[in-house]
Amino acid sequence: MEENQVIDTVDTGIVIFDREYSATYWNGWMAAHTQISENEILGRSLFDFFPKLKNPRFLRSCKAVFAFGNLAFFPQDPYGYLFSMKPVEWFRSEFKFMQQSCTIGPIRGEGKEIERLFVSIRDMTEEAAYKKKLVALTLNDELTGSYNRRFLMNFLEDELYRCRRYNRPFSVIMMDIDHFKKINDTCGHPFGDEVLKLFASTVVRNMRKSNRFARYGGEEFVCVLPETDSEGGVGFAEKIRKLIEELPLSYKQSQVKITSSFGVITYTDDINDIATLMKKVDDALYKAKESGRNRVVVAN
């Protein structure tokens, strides 16, 4: 039959399975990309070959399609993939598994009863890679490679919500390079840029993996420390303050010493929004500047 040839060679994966999740059809595309032949998988449970598929969301979706005859969607964003398989260009893909957009739908028998389901699988790896690149461009600061303000504000919103819901601590450090304008004026902007980069890399190298570091503006940076109490926040700020002070910088053979100031805030339940949080930590940083710079001040 002509249509069988098409279904077998079309650049879309087609899988059909019954109520026991046993495969009853496995097209050529699936065989080619999974290295599992039709003979091997027919009549056997999909979960024998793809154990991760047996997750609540997939099972719920299948039950719903059996019950309602609707379509269930697993778009690449947010789901990534349903059937784990290598990307076509595995040797240069940044994804370990092929990114897929999948749709599950009903197949009715003679009596209009839904007897089986199909899944169609489209390869979205290339599109996902482009999207990832574009997203990175909108979330990163070009000069320092750290996150930008847009990312920071979104991350803070999430973090604030998480802390309120699970009643967990988190701290935020706002930091600023002292007399940065003077550095720029005396040593020139290219040198100033190097200082910014060095400052950013010093923080990033020393922070925890779960922390997020962003350029807030000019020479101002913010570090978010999830699961960190006030003591931990101040400790980290102090560590960075000392490291910055000791940076071996020189301009035209003469040593340049830079220092930085820090405001630290730890979430308490009277902080209702990000604006309040940022205002408080900004005030603390201002106090650090006022009282002589090169120091850490805790917000009250």
Partner: peptide, 16 residues
């Protein structure tokens, strides 16, 4: 994700 799943289910169920 959750809204997408539940939404799809409710719409599909009712319209279907």
């Amino acid at each position: 994700e959750t809204l997408m799943e539940i939404g799809n289910m409710l719409t599909g169920a009712c319209v279907g």
